[in-house]
Simulated scan of single mutants.
Amino acid sequence: MSFLFEEIDSQDSPLGEISLRRRRIPAFGDRDIYEVKLGEEFLMSSMFVDAEEALSTLGLAQVQGENLSVVVGGLGLGYTAVAALKDERISEQLVVDALETVISWHQNELVPLGKELNADKRNRYVLGSFFDLAIDPSTGFDPEHAGKKFDAILLDIDHSPTEFLNPANADFYTTENLSRMAAQLKSKGVFAMWSQNPPEDNFIALLNTVFERVESHLVTFDNPFQGGKSTNSVYVCVKA
């Protein structure tokens, strides 16, 4: 039987104090709920993972071929990464996260999906800034293979294309820097991105300056805190 509330870990990070918590809410059933906070801001909860999983399923559905190499930007609680690995075509997955603390939660299996990610030999953690690696195609995402190209890049870091986890991330959302990231995709490769907000026309227009095809999807899920439904969105882009 779990405690109703427990702080599992709390560490300083370049973005501020980041903490991992576990709680139980009896009204929501017999289950542990895992949460991540950055300072006083809630970043994620294991109660709301539908859109994080849809980021993988919607993105990878547009990828052609076999023996896929995939980058996941942002580890979080691991739901996007685990959902991607359900695609048997994936032969290699790099999960890029700037926070060593978050990677260690999974490596030490302090979060439920850590064990699953650690056991899958296709999965590899990369400690580094997704945004720095994304705009340097000569080096790229794989520290073992400079300039490597990938079949898909799945991004879930910022709250939205206009609301940033770190103000410095804003520089990524330009034609120039999105093009540098797209240079790390193979022909017909896919870039997909999660957002907490409905699809934004200005961002879709920006994506269309870089990619051959752009789609947006509204993902609806139950929100018991609000007594109804909530939505997130997923952008899916295909390179020429």
Rank of each mutant, 00 (worst) to 15 (best):
E7R: 15
I8W: 07
S10P: 08
G16D: 12
L20I: 03
R23V: 14
I25H: 09
G29A: 06
E40A: 11
M44Y: 01
S45H: 01
V49M: 08
G59D: 00
A61I: 08
G65W: 00
S69R: 15
S69P: 02
V70F: 00
V71N: 00
L75S: 01
Y79E: 04
D87T: 07
S91K: 15
Q93D: 00
L94P: 10
D97G: 01
E100D: 14
S104W: 08
Q107D: 02
E109A: 05
L110Y: 06
V111L: 03
G114V: 08
E116S: 14
L117P: 10
A119W: 02
K121V: 04
L127E: 08
S129I: 03
L133W: 02
A134H: 00
D136V: 09
P137Y: 11
T139D: 03
P143K: 14
E144R: 15
K148F: 04
F150N: 02
D151L: 05
L154G: 05
P161N: 02
T162K: 13
N166I: 07
P167S: 13
A168K: 14
F172M: 01
F172W: 04
Y173W: 03
L178F: 02
S179I: 07
R180M: 12
M181C: 08
A182G: 07
Q184H: 02
N197W: 15
D201S: 15
I204W: 01
L206R: 06
L206A: 04
N208H: 13
L218A: 06
L218V: 11
D222W: 07
D222Q: 12
N223E: 01
S230Y: 12
V238E: 12
K239A: 09
